[in-house]
């Protein structure tokens, strides 16, 4: 598998975030997790990069996926 840098911006209470993280784990993808509820700087970074305020946001290299979008994740990870 190609080495891609994957980051998930999420909140602890968000079911879709959990689903995104479980999906990545299931696919054997390593990712960095940022809790945007606790980390305001990362929250700002997420909003700047995704131009919106909803979680989860997954950033794969420099590509942004908003929400749990299985098809888009698959495409960017392949």
């Amino acid at each position: 598998m190609v080495d891609k840098k994957v980051a998930v911006y999420s909140t602890p209470t968000c079911p879709w975030c959990k689903r995104t993280k479980e999906y990545l784990t299931q696919k054997g993808i390593a990712y960095i997790e940022y809790d945007v509820a606790a980390d305001k700087a990362r929250a700002r970074e997420m909003i700047e990069k995704s131009k919106q305020m909803g979680v989860p946001v997954t950033i794969i290299d420099d590509q942004v996926v908003v929400g749990f979008n299985q098809q888009q994740l698959d495409k960017l990870l392949s």
Binding site: T11, C14, W16, G54, V55
Partner: peptide
């Protein structure tokens, strides 16, 4: 997604 949300449980903590 720019302040309007339908999933308070998801996006609430951002605010």
């Amino acid at each position: 997604g720019k302040g309007v949300t339908y999933c308070a449980i998801c996006d609430g903590p951002i605010f």
